[in-house]
Nucleic acid binder design. Structure first.
Lengths: 371, 371
DNA sequence: CTGTTAGCGCTTTCAG
DNA sequence: CTGAAAGCGCTAACAG
């Protein structure tokens, strides 16, 4: 495998091998060679075998650029991703790749930093468009619907992991509301009546915004006293949370992400407070390795499901089959690309799983309202 | 920005806009338009301005496939990545993207699952080659030097995060030996003389193999009694570790990764053993969020540095400048691609940082050999 | 079943 | 400074 410089008379030059070279060496025309490589059309078994053998021997690999140019379309799907150092996004990325692989969809990934008010995002978007991807998966909140809209009628776009408000863009997302509800209900069941909820602004993190909003609302509806602590750049609301807990004003602090919960617990420890004895805490995500050791009470979001459904949808929209079968060369015309059969916009929400953990216990005061 | 269907007489079709369209609308030739888009050659200021304006208005984006085909070379770098659900790889991925971005290098990422004895890897490699990337960054152990070798003389290849044995492939890696040494010395300093070391096989995880091997060797050289517990598929060596600890045969267990350390701690807890009171443990990586809360004693590998150096090297090799300047259109001939000035193979090892943590304390028996 | 003939959209000599 | 012409390597109708 490693040192196979044997029978070949000519010491094959390092330069790239063209299909034409393969065809010549196999004694057929470019067309036939092409057909073999594409696995389409009718080719005699002998021809196919020969071409394949020669191609392998010569180390031929299809020039994707030329291929796409000639055929007028790529089969790869662009993936706009957010900073994968966030474990939740890293996992989503992996799962998308895995699912894509299984479905025969090649993903072209591009991460973007979430600063720079969308300007950078647009640039990445353009590069992806320049590569003439067949579809687009957007797995970052940074890009707004407006920025996506102009491309919407050139290719199918689907958001992964975040709901989409625009009626023309597909989405497979985590059911944040369900997650928020279940966490809030858990806190209520434990008997907490005074709760601090760290809230995010929609423009900073939409998922966290939804989570925190729903949690706070549900708690209030059920008669609990809620302290909303909004955080933003340069103000993480942690000090206020710790302060409220220390003064006994709240017996539980709910935050909209596990990363924040870690920070919170850290701060509480520094202040000499323990979970769940002194204060109950909940987070959200459930992705971090070692979460069980930390005993975080949280929701595990359905990353695998979201990835799987996202790929399934986009694959259908671009007509990929993964086995090389043809998905019908005609029939995509006026309806616009990316419309699933019937022109309906996909809009799925996948629920997660509650993780009991050990950071949320009953309040120290026996749970009665001080009334 | 969103609803700009104004002055244009013809309701511009949703289809792609070609450079020719731009040229026509601007009243110049394709050639001039091309020159403007490439930012090269001499074009009058008025022409440039007009072309740019029209291009923007029409929403023109360069067809990368056609461009690369015509110019015979892409400026993107392929990135072969391992499963990003592993936090260490997820972070490396992010950092590479970030560094690439800063250096003006576009990365084309592709993750691979680490099963399937390299067969899958080769397929991904081929796809990347098919995209005619200008260089290749390999950030996964799964791909062997032999598999890389055939492509070595077509483009520069650099390994990120893992050392490379082949003398022809570049590498920027973590200094695993240094990490192993420092951890082992820490254990020795604490007074441990009987230590279990979970070892990995080179073919399963080379970094973990090096770490565990070096740790064990150093411990032995210094006179400690080492129990090597090798793990492989279906046997994680955890039971043996717990058993040795419970029977007091070892006072410390060293494992070659934090993920494993988490598993170990979990198992120890289940067996009623605590760290560091009953047994000391160390891991390696230091990437996990919340590592401070868990108090893991470990080494933080230099992910950021590795990413930065990797990009710097590959950028130089492919002659990228990030500002669009030309790096000399001639001069790359016999020396082979990817050879840095002088033809030397890059081979950097970057040291990490020790993290004290709380999982490793002194042995319960006062540290004297039972002799 | 196979080969021939045109391009895909862009970059690039080479003349104006 | 600008345009005309010639492909890059491949696929896609068309004939054989």
């Amino acid at each position: 495998m490693s040192t196979s410089a044997s029978a070949s008379p000519e010491p094959r030059p390092p330069g790239r091998v063209r299909l034409e070279d393969v065809a010549a060496a196999a004694g057929v025309s470019r067309t036939s060679a092409s057909r073999v490589m594409l696995g389409q059309g009718k080719v005699s078994d002998r021809t196919r075998r020969r071409v394949l053998a020669v191609a392998d021997e010569l180390g031929y690999v299809t020039n994707v650029a030329a291929s796409e140019l000639a055929s007028g379309g790529s089969s790869t799907v662009g993936l706009l991703l957010r900073d994968a150092s966030n474990p939740a996004y890293g996992l989503l990325f992996s799962e998308l790749q895995k699912a894509g692989h299984a479905a025969g969809v090649t993903l072209l990934s591009m991460t973007i930093k979430h600063d720079d008010q969308g300007r950078q995002q647009v640039a990445s978007l353009h590069r992806l468009m320049g590569m003439r991807v067949a579809g687009l998966i957007v797995a970052t909140g940074g890009v707004t619907s407006d920025q996506l809209e102009p491309f919407r009628d050139r290719l199918p776009i689907i958001r992964a992991g975040r709901p989409e408000s625009s009626g023309r863009i597909h989405a497979v997302s985590y059911d944040e509301e369900d997650a928020a509800r279940r966490l809030a209900e858990h806190i209520l069941e434990l008997g907490h009546t005074d709760v601090a909820v760290q809230t995010a602004r929609a423009e900073d993190s939409y998922p966290e915004f939804v989570r925190s909003t729903v949690m706070a609302q549900l708690l209030e509806i059920r008669g609990a006293t809620v302290h909303r602590l909004e955080y933003r750049r340069g103000h993480d609301a942690m000090d206020e949370s710790v302060d409220l807990a220390r003064r006994g004003r709240v017996s539980a602090v709910m935050v909209p992400s596990d990363l924040r919960q870690l920070t919170l617990i850290r701060r509480l420890h520094e202040a000499g407070l323990r979970t769940p004895e002194d204060v109950a805490t909940t987070g959200c995500d459930g992705i971090l390795p070692g979460i069980d050791l930390l005993g975080l009470t949280t929701m595990r979001i359905a990353v695998e499901d979201v990835a799987e459904r996202t790929i399934a949808n986009i694959a259908r929209m671009i007509g990929a089959t993964g086995t090389g079968d043809d998905a019908g060369s005609g029939g995509s015309a006026e309806a616009g690309p990316g419309d699933p059969a019937g022109g309906r916009v996909v809009h799925e929400r996948l629920p997660g799983r509650f993780i009991q953990g050990r950071t949320a216990g009953p309040p120290r005061t026996t749970g009665r309202t001080p009334a």
